[in-house]
Amino acid sequence: MHYQTKGVGADVVLVHGLTSTLAFWYNTRVLATLSADYRVTAYDLRGHGYSTLTPTGYKSPDLAADLAALLDHLGVERATVIGHSFGGSVALHFALLYPERCAGAVICDTGFAALRYLRNIDQWPGWEIWKNELPEYGITPDWFYRADEAGIKTILEKSVNIPVQFGLRRGTTRDTPRFRRLLEETSVSTDFRDPAGLTEDRLADITPPILAVYGEISPFRNVALRLAERLPNCAAQIIPAMGHFFLLHAPEVFMETVAPFLREPDAYVARQRNGTASTAVQEGGTPG
């Protein structure tokens, strides 16, 4: 498994999203910023970046077990885990399966397979932009509405034609040999859609403190509210005017939002839950 560790202090582990790599945490400055105060480990998920590609093993509990094995390898007893998008499924599954090793988890705009029905494409402002542009790349709206196995696979396959939007490679193709191998030689495109035990009922069993950070105009925004309701130890923060990739667009707002949680996860969540109504949702980005 390919990883990098920087800084000194309590352990924080960063988990990137589907088809991304640990470079995501470079582009968002999260690795550099957090390593001033913490020992931060970023790694490539199985089959991604420089980590070994296997045909199967891409369900969130498999990847949570990989994370536990990485902590063993590093000699780390307990860590706070930050996961973006599908990386948040890995982080929450880690919190469910290894509560004694999870000091807390930050869930960044994760859709969660079990909460797919909460996704709101029509009321997502970004969809207004994308639904006119995606057909140019062979992706039509009906694929999103269906969102079945064939639909998701087609979206992933067609999405390779959309140029890279962020970072030094923007404007170039997504269609790299590495991306092709992941898509064509592994079960990832079906595995990531499988709740694999992380059902809505099981959310009540997740005891470590959780901070759910979602974009105000993300299609997954409603998931934040549901997590805050169902998880026994969770607060939610909504980043104003931001979509799914707020980490790339507003990294400094994200860092301000998570800093007090990372310092004292349990105390932070308790404060948020006592200070607000039952849902413990803060609108406005920066917590008091």
Binding site: H2, Q4, T21, L22, A23, F24, Y26, N27, D44, G49, Y50, G167, L168, R169, T176, R178
Partner: peptide
Amino acid sequence: LQFESIDAVA
């Protein structure tokens, strides 16, 4: 050289 972001990190 067709690097990806992760190649630059490596």
